[in-house]
Design a protein around this nucleic acid. Sequence first.
DNA 1: TTGCTCATGTAAGAAGTTACATGATTCA
DNA 2: TGAATCATGTAACTTCTTACATGAGCAA
Lengths: 193, 193
Amino acid sequence: MATVSALGYALLCALHRGPLTGYDLVQRMAKPIGYYWTARQSQIYPELARLSAAGLIEHEAEDGPGPRQRKTHRLTAAGRETLAAWLVEPPAPRAPRAPRDEAVLKTYALAAADPDRMREFYLAEAEAYQRRLDDFRAQHTEMRSRHADDPGHPQFGAYATLELALVSTPARIQWCRWMAERMAELGRPHRDQ
Amino acid sequence: MATVSALGYALLCALHRGPLTGYDLVQRMAKPIGYYWTARQSQIYPELARLSAAGLIEHEAEDGPGPRQRKTHRLTAAGRETLAAWLVEPPAPRAPRAPRDEAVLKTYALAAADPDRMREFYLAEAEAYQRRLDDFRAQHTEMRSRHADDPGHPQFGAYATLELALVSTPARIQWCRWMAERMAELGRPHRDQ
DNA sequence: TTGCTCATGTAAGAAGTTACATGATTCA
DNA sequence: TGAATCATGTAACTTCTTACATGAGCAA
């Protein structure tokens, strides 16, 4: 059987609730449901072709708005099985799972920068995360009103990703503010004499 | 002036406290100080050459243990400036910053998998994060005893990355356990009748 | 004598980004 | 008339991973 890439699994995941066009997938992977995976258009279309060739998805084509046909992709039985088997596998402990976080990287080398400017950096970060949190909260309430917080609800998975965002984002915001305070201390070290 | 890649900045960050060999950098970027950035050997050596060509780092060479010379790399004045300017820049809101989290991706499609097996998945995740947290806590205490929790201390940056890990990891563990409970409900839905 | 640590590099390929290309319909 | 949305694709390039290659010194 064909080996499926991480992106391939991400697309199978996105298709698990029902058929979508490539264009729909592009929207979802651009700024996705819970900021957990991204991909560009130029990656998505070839990957859909690969999944199709492997028999994990299939599509119906109709005439589209542009010069090409509009294709609606759905999981095949084999695709559903492949997805189900991958979901329960423990996340590769062997491998990269590289968590790349620019702000944390910068923090590591913070001694090389000006404290006042770093203070502004952390305040801006805190604000950006706060805005994101507000957005998450709105989605969360909306999903609750549709009873997606019931584990049996078909959208419970999407709800659960929001739940994670709602517990981890405040921790991050707190940390940013704490960092901003430390930077203020450094900038004016004799303030409390 | 030459444009520096994200990896390039990561190496400049790693060098900010003093000179290191490529080998040292490989160790640090393999399972680094706070799980915030990773890179492989085969990326690091060419990148060091590029930074050198751009005049941001320089090195002394001695005879090494193997067939090649051992090189100790340090930031130049230009490198230090480039790093300082980058540190205070707000993290690119325009761009990818793709947060790739396999466990969250799987959660999104959780309805396609067997609840009992997913329960095991979340319990394993919780345990893995717990082990990591213990590791972080040990490093944290050790750094505190060396007074790295003082913002003026040269290692405060490294300490601060641990601080973030110590507030965000428990939130993640809680979430994993909460997910495991939801999965248990689904597996035996009539338990409390 | 096998395996580990130190130490630096290259080659081939997969994955991901930026930019280009086409064209109908709808909205301001 | 100009921009946005829907819709699918390709080309060129950068970045990242996996695997190979070399070789001294040291410990079990």
